[in-house]
Design a protein around this nucleic acid. Structure first.
Lengths: 107, 107
DNA sequence: GTGCAAAGCTTAGCGATTCTAGGTATGCTG
DNA sequence: CAGCATACCTAGAATCGCTAAGCTTTGCAC
């Protein structure tokens, strides 16, 4: 997949992954890869900054958990995050519908 | 529509618009706006550079036409452009399918 | 027990792409 | 002629994802 396709949609995907249940960054990456059959193969340097951005925007909240000596930062959706996700999904559908119309209609 | 949604997909849309018939830049903008019911409201500063890029990449070819004292640069798809469009559309469908799966499946 | 991979997080800097915000010029309408 | 639509062009900024590196801890293989 051309990685640039993601631009502008990564936030929505991350929010969607975290809607189902909280998760830490590393597992967000894995969930995206699994749920897309490997189509979304994101580098850590892509996902972590996105998480920071979303937390900074108030759409995610995080807490550090420690299992043994291993720390994980677990992210979950805030109420604002749920709202934002709903919006983003609606925008996506509208966008996808428009695109579909353009590439379908040969005239 | 959040304009950033476009990132990475504008080329495909422009190619799709020009697949049907050649057009000059200004009318590409109008066609995109019309065909999407106003969803794609692109600034000239967005579209013209994209056209140059696509022409530079060999996907479009252009010729200057003059009506009176008014010049227009008309763009049309090259063979490579048609191939690229086909590819981009296939990628888009795959991408959209993956996204659809992620935002649809609540778990 | 040493080495190496995987889990897990972080950051600086780059590259590609779109947008902002201006500029030029023509032609039509009132 | 004033004003708006048509038509093109460009420099600069902003955004965003990616590259590429570095760090620690855990666990498995040899």
């Amino acid at each position: 997949m051309r990685s640039e396709s993601l631009k502008g949609h990564l936030d929505m995907l991350i929010l969607a992954v975290l809607r189902d249940s909280p998760a830490h960054g590393y597992s967000v990456i894995q969930r995206l890869a699994e749920a897309s059959d490997g189509a979304f193969d994101l580098a850590e340097g892509t996902v972590y900054p996105a998480l920071y951005r979303l937390e900074g925007a108030g759409l995610l909240a995080s807490s550090e958990t420690v299992a043994g000596a291993r720390r994980r930062r677990v992210y979950r959706l805030t109420a604002a995050g749920e709202e934002a996700l709903t919006e983003r999904v609606a925008e996506w559908r509208s966008f996808a519908r428009s695109v579909g119309r353009m590439i379908a209609a040969p005239a």
